[in-house]
Structures are given as C-alpha cells and as structure tokens.
Design a protein around this nucleic acid. Structure first.
Lengths: 231, 231
DNA sequence: CGGGAGGAAATTGTATGCAATTCTGTGGTG
DNA sequence: CACCACAGAATTGCATACAATTTCCTCCCG
C-alpha cells in the first residue's frame, strides 16, 4: 500500500532515478542548473545523498559537474550530438538485426502494442506522451536483447538524444518521423537481420536530419523574445 | 616541478583514475574488497572523496557496491563476460571499419609502433607489459575515432574484459592470441572497411575462445592448493 | 555613465561525528 | 559436535559543521 506518513527517506538511487526520469520527460531542459540544497530540500534529505546521485549522473555524461560551480544539465553541442548518433548508428542496427534473427511472437506483440500507443498519442496530438513513447520504443528494443550493458548504454544515449532534440528542434513538435517505427517492427518480424539493420540505419538518419544545427544559441534569443518584462 | 612536501591532496578524480588504472594493470583482481578507510588512509584523504570515487566506479560497472557491505571489484560471471564480448563484437568492428575508411599515415604509424612494443614484450616474455599493451591497442583504435563516447565505452569494456580474462584464464599467460593485432592493422591499412570489420570480429572471437568457463570457482581452489601453510 | 575594487551572501568541497548495519568471535545449549 | 544467540568490533550510511570558492551586489573612482 505504501502509505507512510513521511513516505520514508528516498535513497540516492531514488534521487538518481527521479532526475533521470525528469531529463527523459523534458522537465529538465539542457542548461538547467541543479543546485544541491535545492534538490536536497526538495527530496527531504541532506546534500550528501544528492551529491552521490549527481556524481553518478555526471559519470553517465547526462549532467555536467564543473568544479566549485555545481551541476547543470548538459547542453549537447552539434559535435556531441553527432557523436551520439554515430554511436547509435553502430549499436542500434545491431540490436534490430539481433531481434530479427529470432522474432519471438511475444516480443512482436509487445512492440505492436507500443506502436498503438504511439499512434494514439499522435492522433490526439499529445506531444508529451508521443515524445516519451518514441524514446521508450528504442529502449524497448534494447531490453529485448537481454544484454544489461546494451540496455544501460542505450538509456544513456536516449537521454542525450532527448536533450539534443530539445536543443536543436525549434518547433517542440514531433521527435521521431511519423511512423517509421512500424516499418522497423515489420522489418524485425520479417526475420531478415540485414533488412532490420538497414531500416534502423535510415530511421536514425531521418531523426538526425530532423535537427537544425544552424542556430547556435537558440534558447537565448528565444528567451529574450518571449520575455514580456513589463516595465 | 611538482615537489610539494605533502604532494597536495589528491582529488576524487585522482582516486578514480588510480583505482581504474590498478584494475587495468591487474593489481586489483576480481573480488577484492575495497574498504573505505583503507583507501582513505592510503590516499591521505577522508572517506568522503573515496566514496565519490567508488560511486563513480560503481556507475561504470567495474566495482560492485552492496548496501552496508562496501565495495569490491566485480567478478564477471560467464553470462556477463559474454555480454561484454557481445557488445564489443558490435562496436569494435565498426571502429575498425571506420578507421579503414580513411587510414591516415599518422594513425598507421602509431599503430605499427604499438605493434613493435607488443612484439618486444612478447619476445622478452614480459607478460605484465604484454597484457597491458594488448589492452591498450584496442583503446588506441577507439581513440582515433575521435568520438569521446566510443572511447569511454571502450575503456569500460576493456576493464571488464581484463577482469574476465583474469577470472577465466587459468594460466596467467597471453591475453590476445599471438599476433592478430598485426593483421588488424594490415586490414585497416588496406582501406577495406568490411575486411577490417571482419578481422576484428574473428579476433574478438578468438579472445573469447581463449577463456575457460568450466571452472566456476577457480581462484578459491587455486588459492587453497597454493597455500603452503607450514605447521 | 561605465568599470573595477571590495565585501557580503550563496554555493560547493571536505572532514568529522554519530547512527545503523554487518561482521566476528565467544559461549551456551540441545 | 553442531548450532544458535549474543555482545563487541568493525564498517558503512548519513547529516552536519566548517573551509574554500564563486557569485552578486554595492560603492567608489575615472
């Protein structure tokens, strides 16, 4: 039931998970500062636990930890973003091919159910859900490889991708091109590893193409334009 | 000159690096316990810095951090070892192919110089150096991709491989099969990406074949046999 | 009005003290 | 002799206090 009066003190793992989740769901955009006392009071613990959580997140590369200047969410540069997609282009086609090698009925069922969720979110114009779901789709594939290392790597790459999209997509609209995930599932279901890999490669290429690297400091000017600043 | 009387207090990064290096050079075999006060006194700092360094190493997956039971070097299981090699088999052929796509003269020079170092160590029977050098070779390839993410991933996989070899190789002898690294450099120099990738795949396959997973608790019995225990 | 010096406030880095848990060895009991 | 309870020691978990650094505001001078 979990109804403690004080809800028990969260562990550093809890804090880590919460921040990680906040990054994935875009509640913590790139560049946001993560002050220790602020987090500590928010979670109802001392700075100690917060610091270990931040150290772990920094080790993952999803937050930056400058000495004596605290932690902040990474703002991926164009180069870093390309590095993320380079690595994804190496790993994810291999994952897709691996799944295509033995497309279990159970796996396909789960993937197709996920596609329906994506379509529903797309139809209802629920952008927040859609963005989350398209990200989860890739993680779902990684989970079915049964390799914890691969899963961990992809979780990290997913966050970086998420931040890059937030940073380099002016319209906060669609993340993954309309319906390529369906093609991916079909390719996996076909049992042709090379086809699945190729489909993934082109899909990732399209996601990267959807980014607009021209504006180097988008959020700054955008913020200035939008601030009403009465008087 | 760096000649302070007290040598300045090491940062947690220093501690992290030192432990990481100790793992790579096999001075910290799998299963070794890492007590906080022991490390703290050894480095001349308080437990605080040690704890952050340990948290980061645990995040990398190279040490294990059980609650209230402290840290210890991971003892890779057979399954974990196969996962490591599965991921290496995905990433490293892509690295080799990438280098083969544009085999710079400078890169080839460095790689060939590294081969000479390996050969020298092999000829002189200097196992410790040989093991270190063969590991470094793979990291060297990752460095030349110019992708920090790839480099970081491979550093981590290198440690895990190192621990797995230590755990599953009865004779503490050769790590990488005799001279396949030379073949790899030749394949890269040929400028044929697919050939370089294939060479890397077979090489990694050979390294994995060199492991003996039959003994589940090798170090234990070995230790018992070797202890003279006079009287 | 611009710019820099200075100092207070805020924030992070580190050590330490205490609580909580685990480990270890001892003695008792069936 | 095996097994279990228990107390002491050792170790980790956590919060807090203080030191070091940065940030920000103020004021003075050009």
């Amino acid at each position: 039931m979990q109804m403690n009066a004080t809800t028990a003190a969260p562990t550093d793992q809890d804090i880590y998970d919460r921040i990680f989740g906040a990054l994935l769901s875009r509640r913590l955009p790139p560049g946001v500062r993560l002050a220790e006392v602020e987090l500590a009071t928010a979670f109802g613990v001392s700075r100690t636990k917060v610091r270990t959580a931040l150290a772990r997140l920094a080790q993952d590369g999803v937050i930056e930890l400058r000495r004596n200047q605290g932690a902040s969410v990474v703002q991926p540069t164009e180069a870093q973003t390309r590095h993320v997609f380079d690595l994804r282009a190496i790993v994810e086609p291999a994952i897709a091919a691996d799944l295509a090698r033995q497309p279990t009925k159970q796996v396909l069922t789960v993937l197709r159910r996920h596609l329906r969720l994506e379509n529903a979110a797309r139809k209802h114009g629920n952008d927040a859900d859609l963005i989350r779901l398209t990200g989860e789709f890739h993680r779902l594939l990684a989970e079915y490889t049964g390799n914890p290392l691969v899963l961990r790597l992809l979780r990290e790459l997913e966050v970086m991708t998420c931040l890059a999209i937030l940073r380099f997509t002016p319209t906060a609209g669609a993340a993954c091109p309309c319906n390529e995930h369906a093609e991916l599932v079909d390719a996996i279901a076909s049992g042709e590893p090379e086809r699945a890999a190729a489909t993934m490669r082109t899909h990732l290429g399209h996601v990267l193409e959807g980014l607009d690297f021209r504006q180097t400091q988008p959020s700054l000017s955008a913020m200035l334009d939008l601030s009403p600043m009465p008087h």
